[in-house]
């Protein structure tokens, strides 16, 4: 394991320290937690937005704390949901009287911990509501299982729910908009190499030199299929096809596209993938309203990428374009 760290058991703590040190005028750390909160929070009569999850997905989640985005992000240990006692502190810190909205990725751990925090918050008289993001089409959507995973599409939920809340919308309206995003966002990823959880000290899985894992999860959870590594065009085509099949996008639909790097894949390769994705969408007559290429939801140093399509209506476009100012998402 080659990492620039001090102590595998202290990576999250050290990261949070370095994060606050980078943006001391914009954010603060919640005392005794690994929660990051906007410096001026709470904002009275604005719905407070809280997201979070395991660490190792940077810039998610703290990178999305800022004006027009999240009010707080709570970091768990690497790939491990944060705990209810931390989450409740964040909820309290961003409650400005209009309620608090939680953005949760669909993993048992995240759901359980956020739910318990929500129960604690309600016991303290704070109104709380939530959305669960489940954009990963690699996993079958079944009511008998835990359902689909939440991956890079979560970033669009942050941005759009964040913009809605910034406009002064009610908790109910923020939720409705967030749900609209969740209903219209689909993603899928591929890995070329594993990540290494610092405290584990060894790669989460092994891929042969010519293999890739299609449908990989952002915690290194296995995907759909392990097969010989294809060209960028083939990979782009496979991901695009899978997503389109599921998302049922048709001619003249407007979409936002995200080509997201999982960690060690150079941006050059992300743009190569994007080239093919855009070509395929154009062939189908689907209009790309806006494109995001970069590292938005990573998996430590995993090599690979994910592709996300979000179907947009007028409201979502406006909110996607709205001004925002967080380290990992600045729009104007």
């Amino acid at each position: 394991m080659k990492k620039i760290i001090n102590d595998p058991d202290k990576v999250v703590q050290d990261m949070i320290k370095g994060f606050v040190a980078a943006y001391p005028n914009d954010v603060k750390q919640l005392p005794n937690t690994t929660g990051i909160v906007r410096k001026e929070a709470p904002f009275s009569n604005k719905v407070g937005l809280v997201s979070g999850g395991g660490s190792g997905h940077e810039p998610a989640h703290a990178g999305y704390v800022g004006q027009g985005l999240l009010d707080a992000a709570v970091a768990g240990e690497v790939f491990t949901s944060p705990t209810p006692d931390q989450l409740i502190e964040a909820i309290k810190a961003v409650d400005g009287g209009a309620g608090v909205f939680l953005i949760i990725k669909n993993y048992t751990g995240d759901i359980l911990n956020f739910e318990m925090a929500a129960e604690l918050a309600e016991a303290e008289g704070i109104e709380v509501d939530k959305v669960v993001v489940n954009d990963d089409v690699a996993v079958e959507d079944s009511s008998f299982t835990s359902g689909r995973r939440g991956i890079a599409g979560t970033v669009f939920v942050h941005k759009i729910a964040g913009a809605k809340a910034e406009q002064g919308a009610s908790l109910q309206d923020v939720k409705q908009t967030a749900q609209k995003v969740v209903a219209n966002v689909r993603s899928m990823g591929v890995a070329l190499s594993s990540c290494t959880v610092p405290a584990a000290g060894k790669p989460s899985f092994e891929l042969a030199d010519d293999e890739m894992e299609i449908g990989i999860g952002i915690h290194g959870e296995p995907g759909i299929e392990r097969k010989q590594i294809g060209s960028a065009d083939d990979i782009a085509a496979e991901l695009t096809k899978k997503i389109l099949e599921d998302n049922k996008l048709t001619k003249n639909d407007d979409v936002a596209v995200m080509v997201n790097g999982l960690g060690s894949t150079p941006e050059m390769e992300l743009y190569i993938v994007n080239g093919k994705v855009q070509e395929l969408l154009a062939e189908k007559g689907i209009n790309v309203y806006k494109t995001f290429v970069g590292e938005y939801m990573t998996s430590l140093e995993m090599a690979g990428c994910s592709v996300t399509f979000l179907k947009l209506d007028h409201e979502l476009k406006e909110l996607l374009d709205a001004e925002s100012n967080a380290p990992a998402f600045r729009a104007k």
Binding site: G54, G76, E77, F79, T80, S81, P82, T83, P84, D85, Q86, Y107, T108, G109, L112, N113, M116
Partner: peptide
């Protein structure tokens, strides 16, 4: 356990 484990196992 609730406040130190996290993930699925912590709450369970």
């Amino acid at each position: 356990l609730m406040s130190k484990v996290g993930g699925a196992a912590g709450p369970l």
